[in-house]
Design a protein around this nucleic acid. Structure first.
Lengths: 167, 167
DNA sequence: CAGTATCCCATATGATACTG
DNA sequence: CAGTATCATATGGGATACTG
């Protein structure tokens, strides 16, 4: 998915989507977080063509989101698997956020077919917004505005404030 | 973006993507959260064709993510604007998650062009994973597994556990 | 198993003109 | 302003065959 070049420079949302916004990419990451590691296993779960899968895995690997790791089981030839990197893990709020939204808004009972629990204490997990102290933030207490960094005191005529979140 | 029908039923991630996974949809929501409300303003910022914008706004409205509201300024004819609903606000972890990932991984200095602050105390905001008590959860403390509800005690031969998050 | 290479097609999109 | 209509094009993706 390629937005206009201008957006790629000026908007991290567009830039990220240009990397992981293709049709199958997020579903590959979903599978990764469910433990899928090998080409044929992805293929079976996604039901996409191997060419597409190959291309997406390559993009994800080049972006540093997956690592391609060779391994060899005793007596077997070398195989490869794809593992999540830290950059992949940092996409979890996005992926879990998508899942949670679908659970709430697109199912009859508001519950989805996949559970998320902490390993340690088996507590339910959800994506949320927090401040720099880890305290939950109410969504309509948020203001999204253009950052003002160094040399940007220029072009002051344009409005830089933003009305922001209000349902 | 239409994944295979099977996924729509069994995966909330795929289901949500089928609604908001199109090329411009998330960028429309980005603009919504920056206060954009009117057709021509979206058009100018997105630089997409009016037909596409129209279609996406329709999808978002039908999905209950936006509301189309008529208004009339004194002496003017009726105009329309699009406002976020609660369902839109619940997508913020996804949108902010995308932005935050791009800020961290796709910029030189790790900082993006948009700031997120709480209105009340002007603290930085980020997307994160929390448990049911609002406590932060470490990403690799998470286990994603098929929920076991009512009649699913069948088909026990298949492995239902998942290795999950490990970089 | 783990991919790559082709071919073809559906459709999303860009460009543009038009309407109330 | 707020869209709808039309047309040409690009490209993502499905199907399938092939390779080390």
């Amino acid at each position: 998915m390629q937005p206009r070049p201008d957006d790629l420079l000026h908007c991290s949302i567009a830039a990220t989507l240009s990397l992981i916004g293709e049709k199958w990419t997020i579903l590959i990451l979903r599978d990764i977080f469910q433990g899928i590691r090998r080409f044929d296993d992805f293929l079976e779960r996604l039901q996409c063509s191997p060419a597409v899968l190959s291309a997406r895995l390559k993009t994800l690997t080049e972006a540093g989101i997956l690592r391609r790791v060779g391994y060899r089981e005793p007596g077997e030839r070398e195989r490869f698997e794809y593992r999540p990197t830290r950059a992949a893990v940092e996409l979890l709020p996005v992926i879990i956020g998508l899942m949670q939204w679908g659970d709430r808004h697109l199912t009859a009972d508001g519950k989805g077919p996949v559970d998320l629990l902490t390993r340690s204490e088996r507590r339910p997990v959800r994506a949320a917004l927090v401040d720099d102290q880890g305290q939950l933030v109410q969504p309509n207490d948020i203001e999204m505005s253009r950052a003002r960094r160094q040399a940007e005191a220029v072009a002051e005529s344009e409005s830089t404030t933003a009305p922001a979140t209000r349902a």
